[in-house]
Simulated assay, not measured.
Amino acid sequence: MKYYLVDAFVTERAFSGNPAAICLVDKPLPESVMQSLASEFNLSETAYLEPLREGQWGLRWFTPEVEVDLCGHATLAAAHALWESGVTNSDRIEFATRSGILTVMRQPPSLMMSFPRVATTPVDDTSSLRPIAPGLVNAATAGADMLLELSDQQAVESFLPDLAAIAALPCRGVMVTAAGQHCDFVSRFFAPGVGIDEDPVTGSAHCALADYWSSKLGKTALSARQLSQRGGAIDIELSDSGVTLQGRAVTVATGQVLL
């Protein structure tokens, strides 16, 4: 089985953004094998691609510990791998996923993904969250995640996560965010409960971050940076029903899985 190691949402270079392993499935795989292989790769996401019909692929995402419903960077990486390998020449790819049909368009040098918008809802009582995020400004639920707004970009950069406390929260993960100095907003994302202490760049989280910051800033075109050690960049267009995430990807390795 062929695989590609792709850095998605890169800044200006390879070895930035978020790495994903993209496997082109050539025979049906048991879920146990897909999960074990994801643990072997030990990246935040390993994705499995299976051809369905012309222009459409089945796509599943696994962390080292669980299968997830939505993953942005591995979707971008999957589309990049299909185009760069020459498997498809169409400028539009559809992925059938647990979150419905997701579309990726090729617009060199970037790729554009159409994702569902995730509404954010303010949390009125933040007393249980303040020990996790001292200096908390606002908090909101964000689909399966929790959004915590901090005072400024420096607070996001210097944030020290209490991973045990975050894992104990009733959510998939926690995003900390603030207005950016050279972009509209910045963020970091932590999901220790599903095997990801800190995710380098989280496309799915930006479906909620876009909703939150669009309301605060009164604009629908947003630029974002995720301030992990690797760093990543995402440009966003927001509509009533959806979010378009735009970014770049780079293949850094290819190989064969011997199963």
Rank of each mutant, 00 (worst) to 15 (best):
C71T: 05
G195Q: 09
L43N: 07
S99A: 15
I166A: 04
N42R: 08
T121M: 12
S187C: 09
G173E: 00
A165L: 03
R98M: 11
A164C: 06
A168M: 05
V104I: 11
R188S: 04
L238W: 09
D211I: 12
S44R: 08
V174D: 01
Q246V: 13
F41Y: 07
N89T: 13
P122K: 08
T120N: 06
S241M: 13
L148F: 07
V174L: 15
L238D: 01
L238G: 07
P161T: 00
R53L: 11
G17P: 00
V87D: 01
C207Q: 07
M105Y: 13
G143N: 03
W61N: 01
G203W: 11
D211M: 11
E12L: 13
E67D: 05
A77D: 08
V186F: 07
V118E: 13
G231R: 14
M112P: 00
V156D: 02
A21V: 12
T244N: 10
Q226V: 02
P64H: 04
V137R: 06
P131C: 03
S223E: 07
S214F: 13
P109T: 12
P51F: 15
D197Y: 06
A74C: 04
F95K: 11
L148V: 04
A155R: 05
G247P: 11
L49A: 05
E65G: 05
I234S: 11
I22G: 01
H73C: 11
M146K: 04
Q181A: 12
G180L: 10
S39A: 15
L147E: 01
D7W: 15
H206C: 09
A233F: 15
A38Q: 03
C207Y: 13
L222S: 02
L136H: 02
L238V: 10
D199R: 03
S223W: 06
R60E: 00
A253W: 00
L49W: 03
N42L: 14
S187V: 06
S187G: 03
R225P: 00
P30N: 11
L259P: 00
P131D: 01
S32P: 07
G232D: 01
G193C: 05
T220K: 10
M112E: 05
A142Q: 02
D162V: 04
A78L: 12
L163H: 07
V194D: 07
T63D: 14
E45N: 02
S128D: 10
V250H: 09
T254H: 00
Q181V: 08
V194F: 14
G247A: 14
G72V: 14
A142S: 11
A142I: 05
M175Y: 06
P108N: 09
Q229N: 12
D199M: 10
I234N: 07
A165E: 02
C171V: 06
M34T: 00
C71N: 02
L148S: 04
L163Y: 13
L163K: 03
N42A: 13
W57T: 01
D184Y: 15
L37S: 00
N18E: 12
A20Q: 02
Q246I: 15
Q35T: 05
F41M: 10
Q56H: 09
V201M: 14
G135R: 01
L59Y: 08
E45F: 13
A119V: 13
D152G: 06
A167E: 05
S223C: 09
A133T: 03
L150Y: 03
Y212H: 09
L227W: 11
G58F: 12
L76P: 01
L70K: 03
A79T: 10
P170K: 01
